[in-house]
Design a binder for these strands. Sequence first.
DNA 1: ACCCAGGCGGGCG
DNA 2: CGCCCGCATGGG
Length: 283
Amino acid sequence: MRVGEFDIAHTVESAQPLTFFGDERNDRKGITYAYKNSVIEVAQNGGSVEYRAYGPLDADTLRKEVRARFGLDDNMRAIYRSIGTDAFMKSAIKKYRGMRITRNDPWETTLCFVISQFNNVKRIRGIVQRLIAAYGEEHVFSAGDVKLTFRSFPTAEEISKRSVSDLMSHGAGFRAKYIKSVAREWSSENAFGKLGKKEYAKAKEELMVLDGVGDKVADCILLFGYGKLEAFPIDTWIQRIVERTYFNGRKQNVKRIHEFAEERWGAYAGYAQQYLFHFARNE
DNA sequence: ACCCAGGCGGGCG
DNA sequence: CGCCCGCATGGG
């Protein structure tokens, strides 16, 4: 299908959940990822996005999944116009034009970002991959002479059955107790599935009840899991670059930065955050 | 060897 | 509240 203002390389390289489990199958032209009981391959060639699925997925569902996953229905012209109000943001947009906010499975996003705290991207990926290898359900597909094996993302139920020390054996460290607790909460209540219907502030409040989910992780879940584009996750990178760029290098607390982001970027603060984050990490 | 990483919860003033 | 501290682990 034809898509404008989309760059799959910038998108998958910008450390969103899709790439937390990215591996050698992913390159600058495309990505292969698990979706429910299927595997989806997506590749970009100029203004054309091609995709195919292995597994029980009809064409319409597949198309909708790809469009949703890569944020292809976001109006980038409007978003760029809205957030590109200063030279710094304009240069970030220019450099990473086409980078989208991906929409991932909420549970998967929650687990990924609980693991992300006080951690680095490389190790986050490793931990997530080991959890998938250990607890994900295996699926095998044959397409002609090609045999494709993959594991789907482990369910909350599956993770909740494991002991903390079992989870620690995969390198999760002190986060293991959070993983266990969050998995238990997620599998015992079905309220989290409906969080997307609630408004941002209310949904954030409910997520922060979870042990191991604070202000920043909640915003990541809302942005990358529920597509709440007004969410503005403030991590060390964002705090640094916002203070340096918009506050003359003076220290600000998180509350102040949230107020600033809401006022300046409003409904698209999440996009502003992703361009700032990617720009800050790659400079 | 040493430092730090897409923070968080708990404890303190 | 607002700030400060410890925290498992492994890559640079």
